[in-house]
Computed example of a mutant assay.
Amino acid sequence: MEERIRYLLRQYENNKCSHEELEELFGYIRNARSSDVPLKRTVKKIYDDIRKNHPSFTYVDENGRLILTEPEQAFLPPKEAISGKNIKAPVWMILITGVVMIAAVFWIMRKDKPGNHATFRAGGIALTKKFSERSEQKFLLLPDSTEVWLNAASSLEFPDEFAGNKREVVLSGEAFFKVKDAEGMPFIIHTGKVSTVVLGTSLNIKAYPGERAVTVSVSEGKVNVKRNGNIVAILVKGQQVRMDNAGKKVDEKNIAASKVAAWMQGNMIYDDENFTDIIADLERIYNVNILISNKEVQSLHISTSFRKDTGISQALLTLCRLTGTKLHSGDRQFEIQ
Rank of each mutant, 00 (worst) to 15 (best):
K129S: 04
K130Q: 07
K130H: 06
K130M: 05
K130L: 11
F131V: 05
S132M: 03
E133F: 02
E133P: 10
S135R: 05
S135K: 13
S135V: 06
S135C: 06
S135P: 07
E136K: 04
E136P: 08
E136T: 03
E136N: 06
Q137G: 01
Q137I: 02
Q137A: 01
F139L: 01
F139D: 01
F139V: 01
F139S: 07
L140I: 00
L140K: 02
L140R: 00
L142M: 08
L142N: 07
P143F: 06
P143C: 05
D144Y: 06
D144V: 00
D144C: 03
S145A: 04
S145Q: 01
S145V: 02
T146K: 01
T146G: 04
E147M: 00
E147Q: 04
V148M: 06
V148A: 13
W149E: 03
W149Q: 02
L150G: 13
N151L: 02
N151G: 13
N151Q: 03
A152M: 03
A153S: 08
A153W: 07
S154H: 05
S154T: 12
S154K: 01
S155T: 07
S155K: 08
S155P: 11
S155G: 05
L156E: 12
L156V: 06
L156Y: 07
L156R: 05
L156K: 07
E157H: 01
E157Y: 12
E157D: 15
F158E: 10
P159Y: 05
P159W: 00
E161V: 10
E161R: 02
E161S: 03
F162Q: 12
F162D: 15
A163P: 12
G164A: 03
G164S: 08
G164I: 05
N165S: 15
N165K: 09
K166W: 15
R167V: 10
E168W: 14
V169E: 15
V170G: 11
L171P: 15
L171C: 11
S172F: 11
S172R: 10
G173A: 13
E174M: 15
A175K: 03
F176L: 09
F176E: 11
F177Y: 09
K178F: 06
V179I: 14
V179D: 06
